[in-house]
């Protein structure tokens, strides 16, 4: 399991073993939605806001 810093609060966020670039994880400390932008090394960015045309 890898870890990366939350871009909002700086706390460490654990990523799942099978983390994928593009996946969303929540910071357990501040609750920010984070997007996995790298897995080797692990890197996080703030996830985009919900857009009106998102869905299925």
């Amino acid at each position: 399991m890898s870890e990366a810093d939350c871009v909002t609060c700086g706390d460490s966020v654990a990523l799942p073993e099978d983390a994928e670039v593009g996946e969303i994880v929540d910071c357990g400390s501040c609750g920010t939605e984070l997007e996995v932008v790298g897995v080797d090394p692990a890197e996080l960015a703030e996830a985009p806001d919900l857009a009106e045309d998102w869905g299925e």
């Binding site: 099978d18 994928e20 670039v21 593009g22 996946e23 969303i24 997007e35 996995v36 996830a47 985009p48």
Partner: peptide, 27 residues
């Protein structure tokens, strides 16, 4: 083609890779 990998996409990616298919994610 994706802009966010939801659990649904992860299930598909896992299944494809386990079968030996080459997967190209296009953001």
């Amino acid at each position: 083609l994706y802009s966010r990998i939801r659990p649904d996409e992860k299930l598909l990616l896992t299944e494809l890779r386990e079968r030996g298919h080459e997967v190209h994610k296009v953001d």
